[in-house]
């Protein structure tokens, strides 16, 4: 790097502040993950585990319950945070959030269809594990397609337009879920209710694997879009003048957001506001460039949901709160504050 030239590194590198922010987020997320693995209604000594003199019970709680759960909450948080950041960039709308614009609701409807009607299809357990995420991803993709049509190809129509569409989509999806609730039997109703409030409980490795795959692929697909998303903030015409193929960028971001959100919803239900809050916090800490914002939002989302899940299962132990309740409790006042601050828009 040219030292006589302070701007020389600006092309690819993160600023010092952004590097520090990312480093801080990594540390915070790891600490949160370690604490979350150790605590709960049954405390595990990580130190004993490392030394290898933990009891068999501690071992199995750690391997079969805590690690998958923390891994899942981290991954779901990462995909919601990253999808929120990418959608806010793609739509040039600071209020875009997979939940608010109805994408999560579409995924939820897809998943609910399988939870209630899935028993009608005689499929094996392995295939069944894939069926739920596939249905949820399809639901998310359908909603994004609807948004595409409503905004005439994601043209910029003002910040509120897409939120209004989101309200309508959310209402439509809840009609669908309502009908499914009505026709479901007792067992289906139970799992539907628990699932729809958003929870990381009851995760097992076989359930985790398909969604893990979908989420990882989505995260990797999103990463190369960072510069194009930056350029897009100048407007679509300007971005294409600078060499961005807008249509391909849209497909990339939308497909990966649908996959990430769909897979997340299929495993943990609708967890609101993470995709909205996280990118804003990350921007406040270190700036708006997507090469920083995308990884930052993935990390912060992971850290946030791991912590929220830790609270959800320790606040009223041995009982458990739905994690969606906690994120909404934090997120909705934040949303109000955002609206208040953005009155000029």
């Amino acid at each position: 790097m040219n030292t006589s030239n302070p701007q020389a590194g600006h092309l690819n590198a993160l600023t010092t502040r952004q590097t520090r922010a990312l480093f801080g987020l990594i540390v915070t997320t790891l600490v949160a993950a370690a604490v979350a693995c150790a605590s709960g209604s049954f405390d595990i000594s990580l130190w004993a585990l490392l030394k290898g003199n933990a009891s068999a019970l501690e071992q199995s709680v750690f391997n079969q319950i805590r690690v998958p759960r923390v891994l899942l909450s981290g991954l779901v948080g990462a995909s919601l945070g990253l999808s929120g950041a990418a959608l806010q960039g793609l739509f040039r709308n600071p209020l875009a959030d997979p939940g608010l614009i109805g994408v999560s609701a579409g995924a939820a409807l897809g998943a609910a269809l399988i939870i209630v009607l899935g028993s009608q299809f005689a499929v094996g357990a392995t295939l069944g594990a894939f069926l739920l995420p596939v249905a949820a991803i399809s639901g998310a993709a359908l909603v994004i397609l609807l948004l595409y049509i409503m905004t005439r190809g994601f043209g910029y129509q003002g910040v509120t337009y897409m939120l209004l569409v989101g309200i309508a989509v959310n209402a439509l999806a809840s009609v669908g879920i309502g009908v499914l609730t009505y026709i479901s039997d007792d067992a289906e109703l139970r799992s539907l209710t628990f699932w729809s409030m958003g929870s990381f409980g009851g995760v097992t490795w076989p359930l985790l694997v398909p969604a893990l795959l979908a989420i990882t692929v989505a995260l990797l697909m999103m990463a190369p879009a960072a510069r194009a998303l930056d350029l897009l903030q100048l407007g679509e015409v300007e971005a294409s003048r600078l060499g961005v193929d807008i249509v391909r960028l849209r497909y990339r971001v939308i497909f990966s957001a649908a996959a990430a959100v769909g897979a997340s919803v299929s495993l943990s239900g609708m967890i609101g506001f993470v995709g909205l809050i996280v990118p804003h916090l990350v921007r406040l800490i270190g700036g708006v460039n997507h090469r920083y914002l995308l990884p930052g939002s993935a990390l912060a989302g992971a850290g946030l949901l791991i912590s929220a899940d830790l609270l959800a299962r320790t606040l009223i132990q041995p009982a458990e709160l739905p994690v969606g309740l906690i994120t909404s409790a934090v997120g909705s006042p934040f949303f109000l504050w955002l609206i208040f601050r953005m009155q000029k828009l």
Partner: peptide, 8 residues
């Protein structure tokens, strides 16, 4: 052109 976020 308008820019949505606070780019430097």
């Amino acid at each position: 052109q308008s820019v949505v976020y606070d780019f430097s």
